[in-house]
């Protein structure tokens, strides 16, 4: 009995040693900055890092919520998140269904699909900026000169609505491969015999999808939607690089912190965003648990 106990204790000690490095890393680069942000959000931070921040209470938060730019940016971010999550998940699902069938060259087709996801954002942005260039871009050439979809050449990077459309299009194109990979893996795990049984019962392709495929992949889709919503809520890099006309939250935050150098205000934004996202996550968890 005592030997068993000591074995158990040895196992617990080994477990502790094994998790220690991860724990230190997570504490020092995620939890500590998070707490430091909360601390900073109540302070006026001087530009000089040697000066100690001055306590100013909720003043940063008051500035934030009375700033029209912040509220506008928040609305824009919600719009961006809702649309991109819907498009990237839908496209990912459609492509996964398409690629789940057997055809020649399927391996090559599948690896080509994930190309946008593995290439560095910044190089992709350059390609898009060149392709959507007002005068020399190949997109305007095709859309305006050949297909005559527009009367005048659209200014993709300067018009607020068009820029929004552009960043949404870019994000969809770039991240749908992630949804595609996850959904494809789930599709391949579905038991074939379910479809055989459905076929015997005379169910068509449409009915088979809603009765078998969709319920089977629903857990994957719901976790994809949650993760993508969180990631895109903080989206910064491709929007910041593509255009100056779409000040979504990540861009607004970056500009406050690193162009205006108001770290106190930036920390307040971070905390506010964090609370919004956590509320969203808890809300979704409860919904999912109920299902």
């Amino acid at each position: 009995m005592s030997q068993k106990n000591s074995l158990k204790r040895a196992e617990a000690r080994l477990g502790f040693i094994f998790i220690l490095p991860s724990l230190i890393l997570i504490l020092s680069i995620i939890i500590y900055p998070l707490c430091y942000n909360i601390y900073l959000s109540f302070h006026k931070v001087a530009l000089n890092p040697l000066k100690t921040p001055k306590f100013i209470g909720f003043s940063n938060y008051l500035t934030l919520f009375s700033d029209g730019e912040f509220l506008k940016s928040l609305m824009l971010t919600f719009l961006y998140v809702i649309i991109t999550v819907a498009t990237s998940t839908t496209v990912g699902l459609l492509v996964a269904l398409l690629m789940n069938r057997k055809f020649k060259g399927r391996g090559i087709a599948r690896s080509l699909v994930i190309l946008p996801y593995v290439a560095p954002v910044i190089s992709l942005v350059f390609v898009w900026q060149y392709m959507f260039n007002g005068i020399y871009g190949v997109v305007n050439y095709a859309a305006v000169d050949k297909l005559q979809l527009f009367n005048a050449a659209p200014a993709w990077f300067d018009h607020p609505v068009l820029s929004m459309a552009l960043v949404i299009l870019f994000d969809t194109w770039r991240v749908f491969p992630y949804s595609f990979m996850m959904i494809l893996a789930a599709l391949q795990a579905i038991d074939e015999s379910l479809y055989e049984a459905a076929m015997i019962d005379g169910a068509g392709a449409w009915k088979q999808f809603w009765a078998i495929t969709f319920p089977e992949i629903l857990p994957v889709i719901s976790s994809l939607v949650v993760l993508r919503a969180i990631w895109n809520f903080y989206k910064f890099d491709d929007v910041y690089l593509l255009t100056k006309q779409v000040p979504i939250m990540g861009v607004y935050l970056y500009q406050t912190a690193f162009s205006v150098y108001d770290f106190g205000l930036a920390a307040a934004i971070t905390v506010a965003l964090f609370i919004i996202v956590m509320t969203f996550v808890l809300f979704v968890r409860r919904k999912v648990n109920r299902i």
């Binding site: 995620i30 900055p33 942000n37 903080y234 935050l253 970056y254 912190a257 920390a267 965003l273």
Partner: peptide
Amino acid sequence: FPQMIVVGP
């Protein structure tokens, strides 16, 4: 948590 949250600190 995306890196946006911790980049300032």
